[in-house]
């Protein structure tokens, strides 16, 4: 699963780290001073590293809970994100993380108590409410058997019932959730692209069918779920592809109980995009014409607005407008 585990001196011999290490006694366990020595070093290639990534166990310093980017989430109120992990076990070609980090190694910050303190403080500053997103810099569920993220943080949010936790994921690692009593202020938001796009660009990601199945089980168990259709890429035949995807998703689930459904287009900061193009010069997706606006890159599409309207119109055949929002 990992090529090696690096352990910051500061978190070595802590209970969480010892428990993780005991699961992986057969692979090199290497001490380091700071995770940045490995994660931020020069002369590394994200693409090669992705073939055999390592796990880095570290302590997160500084601001642990940050304002969510504008238009990121469902709530028009205060939104925040927190990242107990950097990088994702999946390998989605369109993912901005490839351009954000030099390293494909996974960093797991194990000082959960500090995150809890920071979350509690931020929640208190917001009068007990706010939306808190996990899964911005990683997939929060995908490494659950190692991280025990849900096991720790769901009870934290159970103590703050007015604050909402969104766990954004493509993972089907739902065992922990199914073993816990559901809480009403946690939303499991599953991301989808149309099947052709998924086959082409979502490497190592569970199939659409398996993700729908996982959502079904969660919904049956009483968890609130949400659907994120992103990034939508307008290839030829996108109407048919999304019509089928919407049917597959909404036929299986109790649509009226969905927390929210959103769509988002392919967008990326310009400097991330440039780095990704360098990393994947052979990737047809990045050889397409692009548009640049306000420091963000997107795939150029003459009929973007019309196409979004088509998608939205198709969506509203399944869901109510109240459930929908468009991700910036």
């Amino acid at each position: 699963m990992f090529s090696a585990i690096y352990i910051e001196e500061e978190v070595a011999n802590t209970e969480r780290v010892d428990r993780i290490l005991s699961r992986f006694s057969g692979i090199p366990q290497i001490r380091c001073e700071r995770y940045g020595e490995i994660f931020n070093r020069k002369a590394q290639n994200f693409r090669l590293q992705k073939k055999s990534p390592a796990l880095i166990l570290a302590r997160k310093h500084g601001k642990l809970v940050l304002p969510a980017p504008e238009g990121y989430g469902f709530d028009s109120g205060p939104g925040y994100y927190f990242s107990h992990m950097l990088n994702c076990v999946y390998d989605c070609r369109y993912c901005f993380l490839q351009g954000m980090y030099d390293s494909a190694n996974y960093v797991l910050f194990t000082n959960y108590q500090d995150f809890e303190t920071a979350l509690s403080e931020t929640i208190a500053e917001n009068g007990g409410s706010g939306a808190y997103y996990s899964g911005y810099d990683c997939d929060s569920l995908a490494l659950e058997p190692v991280s025990n993220f849900c096991e720790y943080f769901i009870p934290v949010f159970a103590r703050h019932p007015e604050a909402t936790l969104e766990i954004r994921t493509k993972s089907t690692q739902i065992r922990t959730l199914l073993e816990m009593p559901p809480i009403t202020n946690c939303i499991i938001a599953m991301s989808f692209t149309a099947r052709e796009a998924s086959d082409q660009w979502e490497h190592k990601v569970p199939s659409i069918t398996k993700r729908i199945e996982a959502l079904y089980k969660l919904q049956q168990a009483g968890w609130k779920i949400a659907i994120r259709f992103e990034p939508v890429i307008f290839d030829q035949g996108f109407e048919e592809a999304y019509q089928k995807l919407f049917r597959d998703v909404f036929d299986k689930l109790d649509v009226s109980a969905l927390h929210s459904v959103s769509i988002g287009l392919f967008r990326m900061p310009a400097d991330f995009y440039k780095r990704i193009v360098k990393l994947y010069p052979d990737e047809p997706l990045f050889a397409r014409p692009i548009a640049s606006s306000g420091g963000m890159m997107s795939l150029r599409c003459e009929k973007e607005s019309e196409n979004v309207e088509i998608i939205e119109k198709m969506l509203f055949e399944f869901i109510s407008r109240r459930q929908y929002y468009r991700c910036a």
Binding site: S3, Y6, P28, C32, E33, Q44, L48, K51, S52, A54
Partner: peptide, 23 residues
């Protein structure tokens, strides 16, 4: 798995891209 220059204390971490050998 980790290289340390004793004189400077600086360490380097060759990526563990090769498995199956003692490190």
């Amino acid at each position: 798995q980790k290289l340390t220059d004793y004189a400077t204390g600086r360490s380097f971490y060759p990526p563990m891209s090769i498995s199956g050998i003692n490190t």
